[in-house]
Design a protein around this nucleic acid. Sequence first.
DNA 1: GATGCAAATACAAATCATTTGCATCATTAT
DNA 2: ATAATGATGCAAATGATTTGTATTTGCATC
Lengths: 141, 141
Amino acid sequence: MKKMTIQEDLKEKGLKSTKHRMAILDILVKKDHPISAEQIFFEIQEMDVAINLSTVYRNLEVLVEKSMVTKLTLSGDNRSVYEYNRMVHRHYLICLGCKKILAIEHCPIKKYEQQIESETDYKIVGHKLDLYGYCPECREK
Amino acid sequence: MKKMTIQEDLKEKGLKSTKHRMAILDILVKKDHPISAEQIFFEIQEMDVAINLSTVYRNLEVLVEKSMVTKLTLSGDNRSVYEYNRMVHRHYLICLGCKKILAIEHCPIKKYEQQIESETDYKIVGHKLDLYGYCPECREK
DNA sequence: GATGCAAATACAAATCATTTGCATCATTAT
DNA sequence: ATAATGATGCAAATGATTTGTATTTGCATC
């Protein structure tokens, strides 16, 4: 698969490239950790672009559906966060102090999945692993 | 720590043992997988005990606070589920077909946690690992 | 067993994130 | 340029959960 711009990617997936959709993707592409719909909403307004929160949600929904964005729910928070789908499998380290989210690329689960598959006779298609702790700054308090 | 009844446990934690609280705990103790507040609410009504949903939520809240119950949020569902805290570390295997939840006791994460601790300088206090897949019945479809 | 007080409950209303209906507007294929 | 289809704004609906408040109940004490 050759490199394509976000616009081309949208077109290929049958999505129009509107300024709102582009703004949402721009923001997500720049982040290396997931953020909430509301944060996206605020950041777009800071760019002096008027947008409605439901537009953010609706866009996130289609982008998730088209696999351009990943939606995740982290324990202890009632809202979802979203990140640009870079097609890499990731885990998260969430600071229980400041709620900061760090992405981690190394995954230790492959063998475990196979083992559970044979033990349970389930077909395992994915997993979610989040670590919780305290970042260096919050650790001091 | 010697064995104690649920009533003694409640008393020790400064909680009164009401019929509602007992009913909630009875239900959770019997389940080997987490269930939602609403499910608990329905099951109590099936026992011909009148109860209000907010009572269920308020009880779950104090029981979580006192570590008698564990609250968890599974990906793709907007509601929380609760289980009796048996003081064992568990993971979950969620069927994407029928949403059935299976608890798994084996945990492969210890070494990984240590590794991430030294890489990130975070103090890791816990983690959450859920597997997603299809159970034997749903796999056929 | 009766009493008092704090904790627990019912009920309705509030909240918070998210979704939806619908009229209007913008993007893109033709 | 135009039409068709998809995207947006706005307000209202939703669904899970929380909260305010008046009333009731559990339980330690008399």
